[in-house]
Amino acid sequence: MGSEQSSTRGPRYRTFAWQGVQLTLPTDWNLTVTRGDRKAGYLRLSDEYRTRLEVRWQQGKRQGLLSRTVDGYIEKLRKDARKEKVSFSVQRGLKLASPPGKEVECYRWTGRQQALAMLSWCPHCRRTTHLHLLGEPEESLKNLARTVFSSFRDHCEGADELWAFYDMRFRAPAGWPLKRHSLKAGLIRMSFGGRGRSLEFIRVSLAGTLLAAKSLAEWFGEFYGKPLKRKSFRISEQTVKGHDGLMLRGETSLFFNPLKVFGRRRVLRAACWHCEPKNRLMICALDAFGRQSELFESVLAEFDCCERSLTDVAFREKK
């Protein structure tokens, strides 16, 4: 599921993607902190023991030369090290990666910890991104940094944008910003969209426990009851992505959507399935007007839960 075995012995890697930032990272690194939005934000990823990667981005006008930004940042770190009475050293002009179409500067600093960093400016998406790969002062990070930094992308190429974190992987339409997100243990909920449209990707863990005393349809009715209010809908049981699942199609009633009379129909389409190999319940739902609801099939096809869902897509494409 988006992971690949590295050719040499060492860590396994997989794709990580959030707000357009895309990287290839070791599989045991997980998202621990996220702040901000597409314009400006911050990400932190940690392994089992410590913080391994920090990413900061800002969109907008370019603020001077990259080297000057690095100068300012290093000066701040040097001051902090002086206060803490820790020895501090910097190595500039490292050639760790050169992502195509971007201006980059790579450097290393060593203080209480070691960091290999890359500052990048993309003229296409006008984004300045600062990546910090962290480790112990004596740790060898260069090869890892090369892999991570050279895989760096800061904008999507097509009409869809990839989102990949924890074991979740899906594509959302590029113009649909992230509206809300909830990354709780056992429940991941990502909502995209804006005025009059909404796209949701939900992953619920412990499916076996949740479905021990009720059917999938009963659980779905309870869990997803709120968006179904004021809607007339039809649910059919069928195989979704190779698993037992439900497909739902609903419409807002005429009273709450009078524009329906003029052909402006608001349609809710949703799929819910039980992924047994991963013991998870997955929901993909699109609530939009008219033609936008036709996006549902393509969005659902790109929402992966396990290997079985991928083979199901491949099978469908072959057919």
Binding site: N30, T32, Y166, D167, L206, N279
Partner: peptide, 14 residues
């Protein structure tokens, strides 16, 4: 329970 590492760590710690 086939949970992710972080998921399990967070819920156990809580």
């Amino acid at each position: 329970y086939k949970l992710g590492r972080r998921e399990a760590e967070l819920s156990t710690a809580k």
